[in-house]
Amino acid sequence: MGVIIQKSAFDVGDQINAFSQNHTKMGAIATFTGIVRDNDNETLKAMEIEHYPGMAEKAISEIVQTAMKRWSLGDALVIHRHGTLEPGEVIMMVATAAIHRKDAFEAAEFLMDYLKSRAPFWKKEITKEAVTWVPSKQNDEDALDRW
């Protein structure tokens, strides 16, 4: 398994190719990519992502280990960026490898649901009008109940 927290940009295609090549016995690779989304008025200038160094790696590793126990996975990868990002930039990605697709899909969804509200990252939106911390959503908290 891999957990990478980094400031620099990464190529999603390269990551998926490298991840897939390591797992020739796995028939299914599921991936999710999170992108900085502009608002409806297209006024987002940047998103600042703050994280808790140390705890971010630890919390995500624990979430990945839980997923590896719960589903039949060959491997899992999480890459999450921090720092200042512009609209359209990749924030993070998740990849799961399994023999069959159901495990790969479900585990990827589980990872995303837990990363949303249990990984110590905070987002600040800088728009033309204001600078605001993105509030947490009750939906994201509720999403954990289904697991």
Partner: peptide
């Protein structure tokens, strides 16, 4: 450590 609810992903 003290912080607001997390907003990862």
């Amino acid at each position: 450590a003290f912080f607001p609810p997390m907003t990862g992903g």
